[in-house]
């Protein structure tokens, strides 16, 4: 078994116009940079993208959005990207805004074979319109449905050839749950090792969820908000 494919272009070769994609990352942190570039280069359009937000105008998913490749976004937040915000307000982009916990749970449910669930988030808000509300133990909850995709594009830190994945710090975010919720999961990793090269106790995504893997290259890892503190003398 070898899930390793030659490069990002090969990995996204069968992603067609109109595909539904999950793309990992929280803003630019934990984005699959190589796969996003390949998708941009390939020029596929009419995409539905399920991702927490859309990076900034010139980075991450923002590049696909600026190029007009995306028809619909399912996200929790449009801020930090003026094009996303403006096109959502104008209605030239179909945007479904979802509370972040509901968003995460819908993806988890999609991967776990649970078609719907009840959550307290959003009761009494515009999000509740048209949704079933049911009381449990005297408190109202909203019915929410699973999310699934044709492809998930995932960024891992280390991987083995069988698709077992580890992540690094908060770059983990939505990547492990998205890996479970697509028909085809394509992962890129900073380092790919032979099976046995990862500590089995530390594997976060079991390889069963991953169909394709690439060795990522030339990571730029842009920082959205560089916040630092002053070093006191002696530190």
């Amino acid at each position: 078994m070898n899930k390793l494919v030659r490069g990002a272009d090969d990995a996204v070769a069968d992603i067609a116009n109109g595909a539904v994609l999950m793309i990992g990352g929280f803003g630019l942190s934990g984005n699959p940079e190589n796969l996003l570039q390949a998708l941009h280069k390939k020029g596929v359009t009419n995409l539905t993208v399920i991702s927490n937000n859309a990076g900034i105008e010139s980075e991450g998913i923002g590049v696909l959005l600026a190029a007009g490749q995306i028809r619909k976004m399912i996200s929790t937040y449009v801020g930090e990207n003026k094009i996303f915000e403006q096109r959502t307000r104008e209605g030239t982009l179909e945007t479904e805004l979802v509370p972040q916990g509901t968003f995460a749970e819908r993806i988890r449910a999609g991967g776990a074979g649970i078609p719907a669930f009840f959550t307290p988030a959003g009761v009494g808000t515009p999000i509740a319109q048209g949704k079933e509300t049911r009381d449990f133990d005297g408190r109202p909850y909203l019915l929410e449905h699973w999310l699934r995709a044709d492809f998930a594009l995932i960024k891992a830190y280390r991987a083995d050839r069988w698709g077992n994945l580890t992540y690094r710090k908060t770059a983990r975010n939505f990547n492990p749950i998205m890996a479970t919720a697509a028909r085809v999961t394509i992962a890129e990793a900073e380092e790919v090792v032979e099976p046995g090269g990862l500590d089995p106790e530390c594997i976060v995504t079991p390889g069963i969820y991953v169909q394709r893997l690439i060795q990522g290259a030339a990571y730029r890892k842009p920082i959205e908000r560089r916040t630092i503190r002053k070093r006191e003398p002696g530190q």
Binding site: T76, Y77, V78, L97, P99, Q100, G101, T102, A121
Partner: peptide
């Protein structure tokens, strides 16, 4: 202004 709710709806509920 549309920013999106991010995690706020889940936090206030939970």
């Amino acid at each position: 202004l549309i920013k999106g709710m991010g995690g706020a709806m889940d936090l206030v509920a939970g």
